[in-house]
């Protein structure tokens, strides 16, 4: 028996390639699923703060907690927040904006500039819950893609959104965005916005894997650019990696796990990484971790890279 067993496959570091095994214990499973749980808690928590302030007048020291929605809001009646991409579209229409919303956009840009832009996508955006569900169901259905488009199409959509804003005089993506529709209608009353959300769900489920978030969404593309130089990254510990590929199997943006580039940089450099943490918990070798890099060092590195 033992003699007929094939030699264990070895990784480039000479260690045997071990597959990821889902632990049987509750504690072990919690460790594997912890970031998904944390992400759902944050996503639902943000939603709940908006809902609570809107419906049950939640406040702190007499100040409303979180007024508005993800397009623009006011924290405790003082700190403005605003969707920087929505603001950019409005500016592209050639209209001026009041300072409150401009400051709000700057605050949000600052936060995601540190956390990694696409932390928005995996930790805050309500549509992420819809498309994650679609992806999970899809893996059970075993559906194959109807067609392929490049993931870079989202940057084309981003440019198109700004161009159409300039041409039509209205913020082009804000008027059709399933993200804004879902969040707004959850807080301010249900209309037909769910049809757009259902559309993105079905598109992801049956047409193209990770179709909306991973290929088309211009907001994700915008935040990918914002997060390009963010300090919070996934660290990659090259010597321990056996190239088993478990990380790429769970990653919604597997192109960011370019292991050669990651080995050279010591971290995942692409801004398209959403910092969702899936790869961290499935890695059997404990190769991947959250990591706060020194922004000055990273600036130096990117300079030397561009040469």
């Amino acid at each position: 028996m033992n003699a007929s067993r094939p030699e264990p496959k070895l990784g480039p570091n000479g260690r045997p390639v071990r597959p990821f095994v889902l632990p049987d214990t509750i504690g072990g499973r919690f460790r594997v699923w912890r970031f998904i749980l944390y992400r759902r808690l944050v996503q639902l928590g943000v939603l709940l703060l908006f809902l609570g302030t809107a419906w049950w007048s939640w406040s702190l020291g007499g100040r409303p907690l979180l007024l508005g929605n993800l397009s623009s809001s006011l924290v405790l009646g003082v700190i403005p927040l605003a969707d920087p991409f929505a603001v950019l579209q409005i500016l592209a229409t050639g209209h001026a904006l009041d300072s409150q919303v401009l400051i709000g956009a700057a605050v949000v840009l600052l936060v995601y500039g540190v956390l990694g832009g696409r932390v928005w996508c995996s930790w805050v955006c309500p549509v992420n819950m819809v498309t994650d569900l679609a992806a999970w169901l899809r893996s059970r259905l075993g559906a194959t893609d109807l067609f392929h488009i490049r993931r870079s199409v989202r940057y084309l959509v981003l440019v198109l959104a700004l161009l159409l804003s300039a041409l039509t005089g209205v913020a082009a993506f804000e008027w059709v965005s399933p993200i804004s529709m879902l969040h707004r209608e959850l807080i301010f009353g249900i209309g037909l916005g769910w049809t757009a959300v259902l559309g993105s769900f079905l598109f992801d489920l049956l047409v193209l894997k990770h179709g909306w978030c991973g290929h088309l969404c211009p907001l994700g593309a915008f935040y990918a650019l914002v997060g390009r130089f963010a300090p919070l990254r996934i660290r990659f510990d090259a010597p321990t990696c056996t190239h088993c590929g478990e990380c790429a199997r769970v990653c919604p943006e597997p192109q960011v796990l370019n292991l050669r580039e990651a080995a050279a940089a010591g971290l995942i450099r692409s801004g398209e990484c959403t910092n969702c943490g899936r790869c961290i918990t499935v890695c059997p070798e404990d190769t991947l971790h959250f990591y706060l890099r020194n922004p000055l060092a990273s600036a130096g590195r990117s300079q030397s890279d561009s040469r």
Binding site: A54, P64, L67, G68, A82, M181, F188, G189, G191, G193
Partner: peptide
Amino acid sequence: IKCGQCVRACPYDTLKLAAT
């Protein structure tokens, strides 16, 4: 920007945010 802060500020619930 479709944030609905005016809607929440209205003490008479006059204003609505247009759904799709």
